[in-house]
Amino acid sequence: MSSKEFFVNRYKELGWTYKELQPKPSIRINTMNSDRDDVVNRLESLGVTLEKIPFLEDGYWISKSEFSVGATAEYLLGLYSIQEAAAQIPATLFTELQDKTVLDACASPGGKTVQLANLLNNSGVIVALDIKRRRLFPLSNQLERSRVRNTIVYQMDAREASRLNMKFDRVLLDVPCSGNYVTDKDWFSRRSLKDVERNARRQRQILTEAVNVTKDNGEIVYATCSLEPEENELNIDWAIGTLNLQVEEIKCHGEKGLTNVFGRELDSSIEKCKRIWPGQTQGFFLCKLRKQACG
């Protein structure tokens, strides 16, 4: 059995039929720097056709453009960011971000860091981590271009975030994952179940450390662009049982999280998570967790 057949059969077992898809390019307007309608008008005057993404406040699909939207003055001025539609969801799941202390634990290339700064309206403090030094350069460029003012960047493994000696109100875990075939045409030939399991282990380590640096009653948003349940529902099931976390209801695009995975019954609260099978967007998984107060 080929790797592709193996994974496609798994998706079928989980209730979804594989289909070939092309990712739709999309942008997110940085409303801290600009007025939404003004940016839309400016892009349309350049000949770009935009389509509002119905489940996102500031997101637009690029229906037609004769040139790269990453090479306009408006982009270079930080009036919008190029960000895949599903990837725009995680940062919007937090409540009351204004003035909060937020950790973006796996931040590069910085699309979600900029989005968090936007949602915080440059208030509070964002700490953005990435393990690899070379990935801090594009992250810093994004912050400068997008006129972000409230972020500190460190080269640090998210699994060592306790070294910061800080406690956070909100933690974004856009964890390193296996990805999915929509954004990587060689995905099936490059991935095996072993990779998925290795990533799942690392994700559990990151989740564990995230709990250590989250304040009581603080929120953790866990997100992957993987379709594999080991990195998603199974990790959350483990976290509920091990880390004293509670899954919170979220209202966003996507289907309920799976509570039965390959015959294994999971905690019923996992249906509050969202699983996005590829379609209008790439594949994604989203979960909002609350750290319960001790005692």
């Binding site: 003012r149 409230n150 500190i152 960047v153 080269q155 800080m166």
Partner: peptide, 19 residues
Amino acid sequence: LSEKLKKQIQQDFFYAGVY
């Protein structure tokens, strides 16, 4: 930096506040 960032920043930062 902002006053808030000033309170939180540690020596080994890579980028902070307004470059």
